[in-house]
Lab assay of single mutants.
Amino acid sequence: ERVRARYDYEAQNEDELSFKKGDIITVLEKDDGWWKGRNGKEGLFPSNYVEELE
């Protein structure tokens, strides 16, 4: 599954994923509120910062 970033997100910890608004992220795992994904790097990000691609 792929999602698009709705906002910029700056990683707060080294296991998190940074991205810019409009970036496409491949979702690897979904957990409550935090998803694991890849966009060149791999890490956790808040699920409310992304939207599913149509």
Score class of each variant (00 low, 15 high):
residue 41 K to L: 08
residue 14 E to A: 14
residue 1 E to W: 14
residue 23 D to N: 05
residue 29 E to Y: 14
residue 16 E to Y: 07
residue 23 D to E: 10
residue 19 F to E: 03
residue 20 K to D: 03
residue 33 G to C: 14
residue 31 D to W: 15
residue 54 E to W: 14
residue 12 Q to W: 05
residue 7 Y to I: 08
residue 47 S to H: 09
residue 8 D to C: 09
residue 43 G to C: 03
residue 47 S to G: 10
residue 6 R to W: 06
residue 37 G to I: 00
residue 48 N to G: 12
residue 12 Q to S: 09
residue 36 K to R: 15
residue 17 L to S: 02
residue 48 N to Y: 13
residue 30 K to W: 06
residue 14 E to V: 10
residue 1 E to C: 14
residue 1 E to T: 13
residue 23 D to V: 04
residue 36 K to D: 02
residue 7 Y to R: 14
residue 42 E to K: 05
residue 36 K to H: 08
residue 39 N to A: 11
residue 1 E to R: 11
residue 40 G to K: 09
residue 31 D to Q: 15
residue 34 W to C: 09
residue 24 I to Q: 04
residue 38 R to W: 15
residue 54 E to A: 12
residue 31 D to F: 15
residue 24 I to A: 04
residue 6 R to S: 09
residue 30 K to A: 05
residue 3 V to Y: 14
residue 28 L to S: 04
residue 13 N to D: 08
residue 47 S to D: 06
residue 9 Y to S: 02
residue 2 R to K: 14
residue 31 D to K: 15
residue 12 Q to N: 09
residue 34 W to N: 04
residue 9 Y to L: 01
residue 7 Y to T: 07
residue 45 F to Y: 00
residue 28 L to D: 03
residue 44 L to I: 15
residue 14 E to N: 11
residue 4 R to H: 07
residue 17 L to N: 03
residue 32 D to L: 11
residue 42 E to Q: 09
residue 32 D to T: 12
residue 12 Q to I: 08
residue 46 P to L: 07
residue 37 G to K: 00
residue 18 S to H: 04
residue 20 K to S: 10
residue 36 K to L: 15
residue 20 K to C: 10
residue 32 D to W: 10
residue 15 D to M: 14
residue 48 N to F: 12
residue 50 V to K: 05
residue 37 G to V: 03
residue 27 V to K: 03
residue 18 S to G: 06
residue 31 D to M: 15
residue 47 S to I: 07
residue 40 G to Y: 09
residue 22 G to K: 02
residue 19 F to V: 00
residue 37 G to F: 00
residue 18 S to M: 00
residue 38 R to Y: 15
residue 13 N to M: 07
residue 21 K to W: 05
residue 40 G to E: 11
residue 20 K to A: 09
residue 14 E to M: 09
residue 23 D to I: 04
residue 37 G to S: 00
residue 8 D to M: 02
residue 15 D to W: 15
residue 3 V to P: 01
residue 4 R to I: 15
residue 27 V to W: 03
residue 36 K to T: 08
residue 26 T to K: 07
residue 8 D to E: 06
residue 24 I to Y: 10
residue 40 G to A: 09
residue 39 N to M: 13
residue 52 E to G: 12
residue 47 S to F: 09
residue 13 N to Q: 08
residue 45 F to D: 01
residue 2 R to I: 13
residue 8 D to R: 02
residue 51 E to Y: 08
residue 51 E to Q: 10
residue 27 V to S: 03
residue 33 G to Y: 15
residue 44 L to G: 07
residue 16 E to D: 04
residue 38 R to A: 10
residue 7 Y to Q: 11
residue 32 D to F: 11
residue 33 G to R: 12
residue 31 D to L: 15
residue 3 V to S: 02
residue 24 I to T: 04
residue 31 D to P: 08
residue 30 K to E: 03
residue 37 G to L: 00
residue 49 Y to I: 06
residue 54 E to K: 14
residue 46 P to F: 04
residue 34 W to V: 08
residue 42 E to W: 07
residue 11 A to M: 05
residue 47 S to Y: 10
residue 34 W to D: 01
residue 5 A to C: 09
residue 7 Y to L: 12
residue 41 K to M: 08
residue 49 Y to W: 08
residue 53 L to F: 14
residue 26 T to I: 15
residue 25 I to W: 00
residue 43 G to E: 00
residue 6 R to Y: 05
residue 28 L to M: 09
residue 16 E to P: 01
residue 8 D to V: 00
residue 19 F to L: 07
residue 24 I to L: 09
residue 36 K to E: 03
residue 11 A to L: 05
residue 17 L to T: 01
residue 10 E to D: 14
residue 19 F to R: 00
residue 12 Q to E: 10
residue 18 S to F: 03
residue 36 K to S: 06
residue 3 V to G: 03
residue 27 V to Q: 03
residue 7 Y to H: 08
residue 10 E to K: 11
residue 14 E to D: 14
residue 52 E to S: 14
residue 31 D to S: 15
residue 15 D to T: 14
residue 32 D to V: 12
residue 26 T to M: 11
residue 1 E to Y: 14
residue 53 L to I: 14
residue 44 L to V: 12
residue 20 K to L: 09
residue 22 G to F: 05
residue 30 K to Q: 08
residue 15 D to E: 11
residue 37 G to T: 01
residue 24 I to K: 03
residue 21 K to D: 03
residue 26 T to E: 13
residue 30 K to H: 04
residue 33 G to M: 14
residue 30 K to G: 00
residue 25 I to S: 03
residue 41 K to S: 12
residue 37 G to H: 01
residue 21 K to V: 10
residue 10 E to I: 11
residue 9 Y to V: 02
residue 11 A to K: 05
residue 5 A to Q: 02
residue 13 N to K: 13
residue 43 G to Y: 00
residue 27 V to E: 00
residue 41 K to D: 08
residue 38 R to Q: 11
residue 8 D to Q: 05
residue 15 D to I: 09
residue 4 R to F: 08
residue 27 V to Y: 03
residue 8 D to P: 08
residue 10 E to P: 04
residue 38 R to V: 11
residue 10 E to Q: 13
residue 47 S to T: 07
residue 35 W to K: 00
residue 35 W to Q: 02
residue 11 A to H: 01
residue 39 N to H: 14
residue 13 N to Y: 08
residue 11 A to D: 01
residue 44 L to K: 13
residue 5 A to K: 02
residue 34 W to I: 08
residue 1 E to F: 14
residue 51 E to W: 07
residue 10 E to C: 14
residue 32 D to P: 07
residue 30 K to R: 11
residue 29 E to V: 11
residue 11 A to S: 06
residue 24 I to M: 08
residue 38 R to K: 13
residue 53 L to D: 07
residue 26 T to P: 03
residue 17 L to E: 00
residue 9 Y to N: 00
residue 45 F to L: 02
residue 10 E to F: 14
residue 11 A to E: 05
residue 52 E to K: 12
residue 13 N to P: 01
residue 16 E to V: 03
residue 2 R to Y: 15
residue 4 R to G: 04
residue 26 T to Y: 13
residue 29 E to N: 10
residue 43 G to M: 04
residue 22 G to V: 02
residue 31 D to H: 15
residue 30 K to I: 05
residue 33 G to K: 14
residue 49 Y to Q: 06
residue 46 P to W: 05
residue 29 E to C: 14
residue 6 R to E: 06
residue 52 E to M: 12
residue 34 W to K: 06
residue 22 G to P: 01
residue 22 G to M: 04
residue 9 Y to R: 05
residue 25 I to M: 04
residue 47 S to M: 09
residue 39 N to I: 14
residue 16 E to A: 02
residue 9 Y to C: 05
residue 42 E to T: 14
residue 44 L to R: 15
